[in-house]
Structure formats: C-alpha cells, structure tokens
Amino acid sequence: MAEAPPRRLGLGPPPGDAPRAELVALTAVQSEQGEAGGGGSPRRLGLLGSPLPPGAPLPGPGSGSGSACGQRSSAAHKRYRRLQNWVYNVLERPRGWAFVYHVFIFLLVFSCLVLSVLSTIQEHQELANECLLILEFVMIVVFGLEYIVRVWSAGCCCRYRGWQGRFRFARKPFCVIDFIVFVASVAVIAAGTQGNIFATSALRSMRFLQILRMVRMDRRGGTWKLLGSVVYAHSKELITAWYIGFLVLIFASFLVYLAEKDANSDFSSYADSLWWGTITLTTIGYGDKTPHTWLGRVLAAGFALLGISFFALPAGILGSGFALKVQEQHRQKHFEKRRMPAANLIQAAWRLYSTDMSRAYLTATWYYYDSILPSFRELALLFEHVQRARNGGLRPLEVRRAPVPDGAPSRYPPVATCHRPGSTSFCPGESSRMGIKDRIRMGSSQRRTGPSKQHLAPPTMPTSPSSEQVGEATSPTKVQKSWSFNDRTRFRASLRLKPRTSAEDAPSEEVA
C-alpha cells in the first residue's frame, strides 16, 4: 500500500521540484479525499487562508506561464504608474523644462484676455472677434484635454484613487474654476456660431469669465498662502490700524457733515460726507466734493493729517511682513540645501571615528588635552595620597570615625582645627580638600554678606603664586578674593596644593 505523501509545513519547496517556489498556508490543510486516503489533490490556500480556484496559477517567480503573465502585467503596471506620476508632476508640480508648457498656457490665456479687451473697442471689434473665435476653439481643445489628463493623473495619489477620489480631486477650487471656464468657452462658441440675436450679448458677457483663467496660473496657491501667512502673522497690528482709521473716518465725516450741510449742497446727507471722507483719507482725492466753510476746511485738514497716518499703516505693516517672510523662506531654502550635506558629513565622520582606533588626527579633542595637561583624576589621586601619608595610611573619614581611648597616647600629631565659614567644625583632613566650587561659593557668600568690609582692609600687593609662602596660607580663606572669576591669580592660587600645619609646630611643606 502506497504511503501518503508527508504533510509539508512552511514555505519550503517540495523535494524533486527545486526551481518551484510555492506559497503554502501556515497550517497544512488537505482535502477530505486526501485525509481519507483517496487520490485527491490537496486544496490550495492563499496567504489569508482563502481557498484558491482550481485553475488559478500559483503565485511565485517560477510558476510557469502564469508567472510570465504576472511579470508582464507587473511591468506594465509599473510603467503605467510611472507615467501617471510623471504627468501629475508636470501639471501640478512643474520643475525644470516642465515650465515651458505652463508658459505656453499663460501666453494663450493672456492673448485671449487681450483680444477680449480689444473686442470692446469699436475700431478693432470685428478683427478681434474673428481672432478670438479661432483662439477659443484652440483653448477649448487644449483645456478640455488638460482637464481630463489632470483628473486621470491624480490617481497617482492615494487620496485621489478610484471614482470617489477623482470626484474629490474635481471638487478642488482650481478644478472648479477650470470647469466653469470650459463651460463658458463652449457656451460662447455655441452662441457665436448660431448667428442669432443673442450671440452678441452672450459673447460680450461670458467672454470675461475667461479672466478666471489668470487665476489658474498659480494652481498651488503659493501667492495666496504667502499673503495669508503675512496677514495672520500681523493680524493684531492690522486690526488696530484699521480700527483707529475707521473711527477717524466716521468722526471726521460726521463733523464735516454738521459744518457743511447748510452751506454746501455736496454734503446734503451723511452718506455724501462718508464718501468724501473715504476718498480723502485714502489719499485718492477725486475733487467732486470739497468743503466751502472755514470750519469745514479746518476739520477736514486736521482729520486728514490724523487719519492718513492710520490708513497708511497697513501698507507699511504688510510690506515689512512680506520682507520678513521672504527672508525666512530664503533662510529655509539654505537650511534645506545644507541639511543633507551636513548629515552626510556627520555620518562619514562617525564611520571614520568608529573604524580608526588610533585617531591620531583628533588634535583638538579632550583626549588630546588630557594627555598634555594633568587630568583631574590625577589631581584627586594626588590629594588622596598626600592625605593618607599624613594620616598614617588612613583616609580622612576613617580618621574622624576612629575612637580614641581616654589616657591613651595619640598616634597622630595634634592638628589645628579649622572652621569653614557658615558651618560647624569639620575634620581637619578636609581643609585642604576644598575644591574650586567651594572656594568660589565661599567668595560669593563673603561678597553678599559684607562687601563694604573688603574695601576697608589695607590693599594687598598682588604677587605671583611662585613667590607666595606656603606656610602662610594655612586656610583657603587666605586666598585673595576677587569680584570676578576671570582673575588668573585667584584661579592659579585655588589650584595650588595647600599643606596642613599642626598647632604646635607648623613646618612648611611643599608638595611638588
């Protein structure tokens, strides 16, 4: 009796068929016929556990003709996506030579605008209408194809895939403007070719909807975003200037109206006075309405000098805001240009540092100066060695804690006790272990408590650290204090090793 083939788990290929790579489910599931010992083939499952149809090819690079078809379809799909992405970037994010197409579109729109203006002049109306009709045909074809291509290429973005995504893309403001202008152009052409009475009025009214094509030149909205950011950044200043200017306008108009309503027919109503105030304070000055009385002229002159300053403030605020924003954008561009080279330089330096163990090129690091100058660790070890030599091999803490019996001779020589300023008595072995921070803190506390006492003391002649007598400086308080830590004499004296002298005989010792 033939044995059933062993159940295979995992992703390994079956024996005897090495080139074939078959994806098997996580659990080997066989058909009921196979479990019962029949000759049925096992049921194939996909990666998600769903059964595959009987005629479906197995996924994998070596699955025969199905694999070749899959490779061809995958390559075609990649080319399709690449083309779609390229078209989308050309239309929505132009760079380099892609601006040539947008310059061509701008020339078409500008020519249409010029011809629309010439069509309103009686001398050039006939020729402009003929040229404009031909140009409209060209623009309908160009913009119609462009609109379709834009909607198709938007599928390269995830949020615009599918018919719902394309509809979302078509609802964008600039796409809506394109659609309105396209419909208006078709209506103008249809009305112009019919030759009816309505054609002339339709051409004159709907052609100027094509002015909206100038708005579509900035599809990404960079200028509007820049203007919005400047207004938002200086909103408080703008609101303040406009508010005060509006108050000056209504008060000036009302007072001039009261002064001129009886003697001047131009100011017969408050609305006429508001019109005069707006034209005057905005420095336009049509001259259609002028005050005639001396009181009205004085009020107009005073409020004009006051109001023009507030009406001119928004222009200066926006101008300075634009300058600052442009400078910030230039700085951001320079930062973006330098970020990648800086990151590459840091990575290269780290690779060199991690692979080169000698690091002989590091001549400006802490390790280099640590090898030249005595390190703080060596100074600490030197302090501890000196203290243990004086205390008979014991550390200062051990000397303080060691009990001394009554009447027993002390094995240590008597030492002079010292007192730290602002604290109780402490171990004499710690007097010379006072660090730089303690010395600086002690000097600052003395300056806070009594700076007036220092200038009363007789001035001391500054001497070099080499000429100081070591026996005289029994305490860190003898170090000359200065008002600034930048004094080199104080810094050098604080680094010197001060020996400890006994109370009975204080021989001067120098520590090399």
Rank of each mutant, 00 (worst) to 15 (best):
M1V: 03
M1L: 03
A2D: 05
E3K: 10
P5H: 09
R7S: 07
R7C: 09
L9I: 13
G10D: 03
G10C: 07
L11P: 06
G12D: 06
P14T: 11
P14Q: 06
D17N: 10
D17H: 05
A18V: 15
P19H: 10
R20C: 15
R20G: 14
R20S: 01
A21V: 06
V24M: 04
L26P: 04
L26I: 11
T27M: 06
T27R: 10
T27P: 04
V29A: 05
G34R: 14
G34D: 07
E35V: 04
E35A: 04
G37D: 08
G38W: 03
G38V: 04
G39A: 05
G39R: 03
G40S: 06
S41Y: 08
P42L: 05
R43L: 07
R44S: 04
R44P: 04
R44H: 08
L47I: 04
L47R: 10
L48P: 02
L48Q: 10
G49S: 03
G49V: 03
G49A: 04
S50T: 08
S50C: 02
L52R: 11
P54A: 05
P54T: 11
P54S: 14
G55D: 15
A56E: 13
A56S: 07
A56T: 11
P57R: 15
L58R: 13
P59A: 08
G60R: 11
G62S: 07
G62V: 10
S63F: 11
G66S: 05
A68P: 06
A68G: 07
A68T: 11
C69R: 13
Q71R: 14
S73F: 12
S73A: 10
A75S: 13
A76P: 12
A76E: 12
K78T: 12
R79H: 12
R79L: 09
Y80C: 06
R81P: 13
R82H: 08
R82C: 06
L83R: 02
L83P: 07
Q84P: 01
N85I: 11
N85S: 15
W86C: 14
V87G: 10
V87F: 12
V87D: 01
V90E: 04
V90A: 15
L91V: 11
L91M: 12
E92Q: 09
R93W: 14
R93L: 15
R93G: 12
P94T: 02
P94R: 00
G96D: 15
A98V: 05
A98S: 04
F99S: 11
V100I: 09
V100G: 11
V100L: 04
V100D: 01
Y101H: 03
H102D: 02
F104L: 04
F104Y: 05
I105M: 05
I105T: 06
L107V: 05
L108P: 06
V109G: 02
S111T: 05
S111R: 02
C112S: 04
L113R: 12
S116A: 07
V117M: 12
L118R: 05
T120P: 09
I121V: 07
I121F: 07
Q122K: 04
Q122L: 01
Q122H: 06
H124Y: 09
Q125E: 05
Q125P: 05
E126K: 03
E126V: 08
L127F: 10
A128V: 05
A128S: 04
N129Y: 06
E130K: 03
C131W: 09
C131G: 03
C131F: 14
L132F: 15
L133P: 07
L133V: 13
L133R: 04
I134F: 12
E136D: 15
E136Q: 15
E136A: 14
E136K: 03
E136V: 03
F137S: 09
M139T: 09
I140T: 05
I140F: 10
V142D: 01
G144R: 00
G144C: 08
E146G: 00
E146Q: 02
I148N: 03
I148L: 02
I148T: 10
I148S: 09
V149F: 12
R150L: 12
V151F: 09
V151I: 12
S153F: 00
G155A: 03
C156G: 15
C157R: 09
C157S: 15
C157Y: 15
C158S: 06
R159C: 13
R159S: 15
R159P: 15
Y160N: 02
R161P: 02
Q164P: 07
G165C: 00
G165D: 00
R166L: 15
R166H: 07
F167L: 09
A170G: 04
A170S: 11
R171S: 14
R171I: 15
R171T: 13
K172E: 11
C175F: 04
C175W: 02
D178H: 06
F179V: 08
F179C: 05
F179S: 04
V181E: 02
S185T: 10
S185P: 03
A187D: 00
A187S: 06
A187V: 09
A187P: 09
V188D: 10
I189S: 05
I189M: 10
I189V: 00
A190D: 01
A191T: 02
T193A: 07
T193I: 01
N196K: 05
I197T: 07
I197V: 07
I197N: 02
F198S: 01
F198V: 10
A199S: 04
T200R: 03
T200K: 06
S201Y: 07
S201F: 06
S201T: 04
A202T: 03
A202V: 04
R204C: 12
R204S: 04
S205N: 09
S205C: 03
R207L: 00
F208S: 08
F208I: 14
F208C: 07
L209Q: 09
L209M: 15
I211S: 04
R213S: 11
R213P: 02
R213L: 03
R213H: 10
M214R: 00
M214V: 10
R216S: 05
M217I: 11
R219L: 15
R220C: 14
R220L: 03
R220G: 05
G222S: 10
T223I: 11
T223P: 15
T223N: 02
W224G: 00
L226P: 00
G228C: 10
S229A: 13
V230E: 00
V231G: 01
Y232C: 11
A233V: 12
H234N: 11
H234P: 00
K236N: 02
K236Q: 09
K236T: 04
L238Q: 01
T240S: 13
A241P: 00
A241V: 01
W242L: 15
Y243F: 03
Y243C: 01
I244V: 02
I244F: 04
G245V: 15
F246L: 01
F246V: 06
V248L: 03
L249V: 06
L249F: 02
F251C: 09
A252P: 00
A252V: 02
L255Q: 00
V256I: 00
V256A: 00
L258R: 01
E260V: 00
E260D: 01
K261Q: 03
D262H: 04
A263S: 09
A263V: 09
N264Y: 00
S265F: 02
D266A: 02
F267Y: 01
F267I: 02
F267S: 01
S268C: 01
S269C: 07
Y270D: 00
A271G: 15
D272N: 03
D272E: 09
D272V: 00
S273A: 03
L274H: 00
L274V: 01
L274P: 00
W275L: 01
W275G: 00
W275S: 00
W276R: 01
G277A: 05
G277E: 00
G277W: 00
T283P: 00
T283A: 01
T283S: 00
G285S: 00
Y286H: 00
Y286S: 01
D288N: 00
D288H: 00
K289M: 11
K289Q: 02
T290S: 04
T290I: 05
P291A: 00
H292N: 05
T293K: 00
L295Q: 00
G296C: 00
G296R: 01
A301T: 05
G302S: 15
G302V: 14
A304V: 02
A304D: 00
L305S: 00
L306V: 13
G307C: 00
G307V: 00
I308F: 12
I308M: 03
I308S: 06
S309F: 00
S309C: 02
S309T: 01
L313P: 00
L313Q: 02
P314H: 02
A315G: 12
A315D: 01
G316A: 00
G316C: 00
I317F: 08
I317N: 01
L318V: 01
G319C: 03
S320T: 15
S320F: 01
G321S: 00
F322C: 01
A323T: 01
L324V: 03
L324P: 01
K325M: 05
K325N: 00
Q327H: 01
E328G: 01
E328A: 02
Q329L: 11
Q329P: 03
H330N: 03
R331L: 00
H334Y: 11
F335Y: 02
F335C: 01
E336Q: 02
K337E: 02
R339G: 01
P341R: 03
P341S: 03
P341Q: 03
A342T: 01
A342G: 03
A343T: 05
A343P: 01
N344K: 07
N344S: 05
L345P: 00
L345V: 05
I346S: 01
I346F: 01
Q347K: 10
Q347H: 07
